[in-house]
């Protein structure tokens, strides 16, 4: 099977396409691998533009609708670009009981973004995620790879300040 030339996309560099092709090649013919492929591709690009979904579909020989169906079903996958820093606020029950709602309100007001959205300057994306299983630290916020426990509404902006 010949691989069609890759379409141009502002967020996907030729090096990224190379990695994507390698991911697809490694999983081709393995039943049920589409979720793993999408996960790895998203790690490369940061999100899943429609051109990438098309490439996965033709690479794995699946209908585009199937791949899009999977990408849109699971909350791990994002079809929209993300900000430079990703804030995950835990919406588990323990965090809720301990006041994550007030924390979110504060972030929303300061950076003008809603959960699921990205701030106008692309500095932050905010995600309200499912229980992170770190209920001992509630309320919990994860910024990129840093976990912050016991986040209080009046401290949260200060915590976010170093992330530019």
């Amino acid at each position: 099977m010949s691989v069609p030339p890759h379409p141009e996309h502002p967020d996907i560099t030729p090096e990224m396409w190379e990695k994507i092709d390698a991911v697809i090649a490694r999983h081709r013919g393995v039943a049920g691998s589409v979720i793993a492929v999408l996960r790895e591709c998203q790690q490369v690009v940061g999100y899943l533009p429609v051109e990438l979904i098309d490439a996965v579909a033709s690479g794995l020989n699946l209908p585009r609708s199937d791949v899009f169906g999977v990408a849109s079903f699971y909350s791990l996958f994002s079809l929209k670009p993300k900000g430079r820093n990703l804030i995950k606020v835990c919406m588990g029950t323990a965090c809720y009981v301990k006041g994550i709602k007030e924390v979110i309100t504060r972030i929303e007001a300061r950076f003008q973004l809603a959960p699921g959205g990205t701030s106008p300057d692309r500095r932050f994306s905010l995600e309200a995620v499912r229980c992170l299983g770190a209920c001992g630290l509630a309320p919990v916020m994860v910024v990129n790879n840093d976990t912050f426990g016991d986040v209080k509404a009046d401290r949260v902006i200060e915590v976010l300040e170093p992330y530019r």
Binding site: A31, G32, S33, V34, I35, A36, L38, R39, D66, G69, V70, F73, Y74, S75, L76, F77, V129, R130
Partner: peptide
Amino acid sequence: QGAGAFVCGEETALMRSIEGK
């Protein structure tokens, strides 16, 4: 690895997910 869907804790949904659906 799951991909973030609570319903996949349900047994038949979990199996569909392993099948890549």
